[in-house]
Nucleic acid binder design. Structure first.
Length: 479
RNA sequence: GGCGCCAUAGCCAAGUGGUAAGGCAGAGGACUGCAAAUCCUUUAUUCUCCAGUUCAAAUCUGGAUGGCGCCUCCA
């Protein structure tokens, strides 16, 4: 079965057909590094990480590029405020970005190109666009002549007339037409600048993505992703630049994620209603945040508050509990094998059924919400079987359970949240807890409930959770 | 003003023609010394509203209402 994805360019779901068989080349607009990233920034990062992982899971050879905009008005302004060199400021926040992304389980892109390291490519591209009469230079600025490019508006579904009304020329700009946008900006005093055929200056915002995507993925590549707010003007301009320059289709599939909202309002730096990811990660583990983002389809809006993260944490714990239950059951059966029961057939069939449902869901425009339902179904069925009082099993049952554990690992390669990340405990802790558990066991045998409860309650604040299960007491460490 | 998106239970959320997935929270029960975890049962005769098409609509069409986004930096 083929993977279908929603293409903003044609406003419909389409079957994915790669430019080159077996390969996926994708580019995602990364952050402008002038601050720590906020939750809204995290959405595309996670969404496209999942998409990228899924293509890989389905056997594609994926090349994934995500840029950093490390030169920009906002960076320059922020650098002035912090009295830092703009390049150093960008570097600081790029490092912070990776720290945050790592916690979310986001894999590194194959390439993380920076604008400052691609000035040469950008200048070459601007020059070619000028040669094709699609851009013009005025006093060190270079502007793209929008009316010269016939396809302008095809992504955002706007006509030039529609755009005319909202367009304006800012003070100091020298555009021939209000709709034209800057490819190159003449240097202002004190700003980072590079030599160019048009004098000292720096790239406009849009040209970087065209130059870098072309360099790493070719003139025509498969997927371009980003937030829905980038459709216009950023991605519209990218199309104009890349196709104007190269003369061929630049991107086959445009994918856009929906927004995170706060009280139904868009979370954004400009509205000031944003939550820094690092602050959220101080309260909730990365996998929980990732699960929360994944629980809703990537194109839908997603409202944020702490209660929703708390609910996500509970949901995720349900999956983790099942994972632990299976692992413990296997260990128990290995110690004291019984005979394989009639549950064996069901256990053996489970992985294939769940895998099928998971893939069908993900194939349909990466329906993570539905894919997770398949995992919850698995949890329910396994829990039901394993909790039967008379459940036992031999070699075959153990194999079947191991296959289910392997399925968790397999699906985890896509969603990266299915396997609980145990807090590490050192040997001393292990040994001490064994002693404590023994003491508590004696207290319980003697029906000394106050002592037993004291031990359990006192350890809880330390992150040690004691549970008395039908199979005996056990403890786990949680954050 | 132009372009576009959305509306499903207390909350989150899937479902785009065949009779409402899943999760959280709630209720009852099992298990337990208690708690936790888990299991069983239960929670929308109905998908914002109105009209239409159809044997059949949450799903298609038209309209209304409400909410959001883009058009200026934004993921």
């Amino acid at each position: 079965m083929a993977i279908k994805l929603y293409n903003t360019l044609r406003k419909q779901k389409e079957e994915f057909v790669p430019v080159e068989p077996g390969k996926v080349k994708m580019y995602v607009c990364g952050p402008t590094t002038y601050n720590y990233i906020h939750l809204g920034n995290a959405r595309p990062i996670v969404a496209f990480d999942i998409i990228r992982r899924y293509f890989r899971y389905r056997g594609f050879d994926v090349t994934y590029v995500q840029n950093f905009t490390d030169v920009d008005d906002k960076i320059i302004n922020r650098a002035k405020e912090e009295n830092m060199d703009p390049v150093a400021l960008a570097k600081k926040y790029i490092e912070a970005y990776f720290a945050d992304a790592d916690q979310l389980g986001v894999l590194r892109a194959d390439v993380h190109p920076k604008v400052t390291e691609h000035i040469k490519e950008i200048i070459t591209m601007v020059r070619r666009i000028i040669e094709r009469d699609l851009a013009y230079e005025v006093n060190g600025d270079v502007y793209f002549a929008v009316r010269q490019f016939p396809g302008y508006g095809k992504l955002s579904g706007r006509s030039l007339e529609d755009m005319q009304a909202g367009a304006r020329i800012a003070v100091g700009e020298q555009k021939r037409d209000p709709l034209d946008f800057a490819l190159w900006k003449a240097a202002k005093p004190g700003e980072p600048a590079w030599n160019s055929p048009w004098g000292k200056g720096r790239p406009g915002w849009h040209i970087e993505c065209s130059a870098m995507s072309t360099k790493y993925l070719g003139e025509t590549f498969d997927i371009h992703g980003g937030g829905a707010d980038l459709i216009f003007p950023h991605h519209e301009n990218e199309i104009a630049q890349s196709e104007g320059c190269n003369g061929v289709l630049s991107v086959k599939y445009w994918l856009h994620n929906g927004f995170i909202t706060i009280n139904q309002e868009k979370m954004s730096k400009s509205l000031g209603n944003f939550f820094l990811l690092r602050d959220i990660l101080a309260k909730f583990p990365g996998p929980v945040v990732r699960f929360y983002l994944m629980n809703t389809h990537y194109r839908s809006p997603l409202d944020f508050d702490d209660q929703k993260l708390a609910a996500a944490e509970k949901s995720l714990q349900r999956i983790w509990t099942t994972y632990r239950l299976i692992a413990e059951k296997i260990a128990g059966l290995e110690k004291a094998p019984g005979s394989d029961g009639e549950d064996l057939a069901t256990l053996k069939e489970l992985p294939e059924k769940v895998r099928e449902n998971f893939i069908a869901a993900m194939d349909d425009d990466f329906n993570t919400s539905l894919a997770l339902a398949a995992v919850f179904d698995l949890c329910k069925e396994v829990n039901t079987l394993l909790n039967q009082r008379d459940f036992q099993g031999g070699e075959e049952t153990i194999k079947a359970l191991q296959a289910i554990l392997a399925l968790f690992a397999e699906l985890d390669a896509v969603v990266a949240v299915l396997i609980p990340k145990e807090e590490e405990t050192d040997d001393l802790t292990q040994d001490l807890l064994e002693i404590i558990m023994n003491l508590r066991g004696k207290a319980r045998s003697a029906k000394d409930w106050p002592t037993a409860d004291y031990i359990r309650d006192a350890l809880k604040p330390l992150g040690i959770i004691i549970e008395d299960t039908p199979d005996g007491p056990r403890w786990k460490k949680e954050k």
